[in-house]
Simulated assay, not measured.
Amino acid sequence: MKKILFFLFISSVFTFSQKADKEDIKKTIKTESIGGRMDFSKMVEEKYSSAPLIGFGNTLYNKKDFAILLWGAKVKNLGIESMDEALKLWGEIHNKKLTTPESKALKVGFKTKFE
């Protein structure tokens, strides 16, 4: 049930054309990741304002890491094909390297399969 709700949430945030080329996708991701539609930190804070931790699968995430998990799922859904590419893109956008917990959250989001 949680996976279905998660999929519906990710799908409803917004969609991009499947025909957009990879550079256009990366440019859009970079534009929308800070203060835009892919800045999931704002949405997570609003939706889970009273929750100190958010459960996904068998793991609890703080709000920052859960927002990164959502970002990872979205970039995979948009066509970013490798985890290394997603990590590099995150670093370019935020001008910093992910911590170990942040990296694990991004990997979980990136590897999540939607039916």
Results as ranks from 00 to 15, higher is better:
33 S>V: 02
95 N>V: 07
41 S>R: 12
18 Q>I: 11
3 K>G: 03
35 G>E: 03
28 T>I: 13
28 T>Q: 10
48 Y>I: 02
45 E>D: 14
26 K>S: 10
61 Y>I: 01
107 K>A: 14
22 K>S: 11
27 K>F: 13
53 L>T: 11
48 Y>M: 03
94 H>C: 03
43 M>H: 08
58 N>H: 11
86 A>D: 04
9 F>H: 11
63 K>E: 10
7 F>E: 13
9 F>K: 03
76 K>V: 03
2 K>M: 08
93 I>N: 04
83 M>I: 14
109 G>E: 08
8 L>K: 03
107 K>H: 10
76 K>Y: 07
101 P>T: 10
64 K>P: 01
104 K>L: 08
89 L>Y: 10
114 F>D: 00
92 E>R: 12
44 V>R: 00
42 K>N: 15
84 D>C: 05
69 L>T: 00
59 T>G: 02
11 S>N: 15
45 E>F: 13
78 L>T: 02
54 I>N: 02
49 S>I: 06
43 M>R: 06
94 H>M: 12
103 S>T: 11
23 E>C: 03
23 E>T: 07
97 K>F: 11
41 S>W: 01
2 K>V: 06
30 K>S: 12
11 S>T: 14
57 G>D: 04
1 M>R: 13
96 K>R: 15
16 F>H: 09
84 D>E: 15
64 K>H: 11
61 Y>A: 05
19 K>T: 11
36 G>H: 05
34 I>K: 13
24 D>A: 11
16 F>Q: 14
95 N>G: 12
95 N>K: 13
20 A>S: 12
33 S>L: 06
102 E>N: 06
69 L>D: 00
85 E>W: 05
60 L>M: 08
24 D>I: 09
85 E>Y: 04
71 W>T: 01
83 M>D: 08
99 T>N: 10
68 I>V: 00
36 G>L: 09
76 K>C: 11
104 K>N: 09
101 P>M: 08
77 N>K: 12
63 K>F: 05
86 A>Y: 04
83 M>P: 04
85 E>L: 04
85 E>V: 05
52 P>C: 04
28 T>G: 09
21 D>G: 04
90 W>T: 14
34 I>V: 14
99 T>E: 13
65 D>S: 10
86 A>P: 08
7 F>P: 01
65 D>Q: 10
36 G>P: 01
115 E>R: 10
10 I>H: 01
92 E>G: 02
81 E>P: 04
41 S>G: 08
39 D>H: 05
71 W>G: 01
115 E>Q: 12
12 S>W: 09
113 K>R: 13
47 K>Q: 10
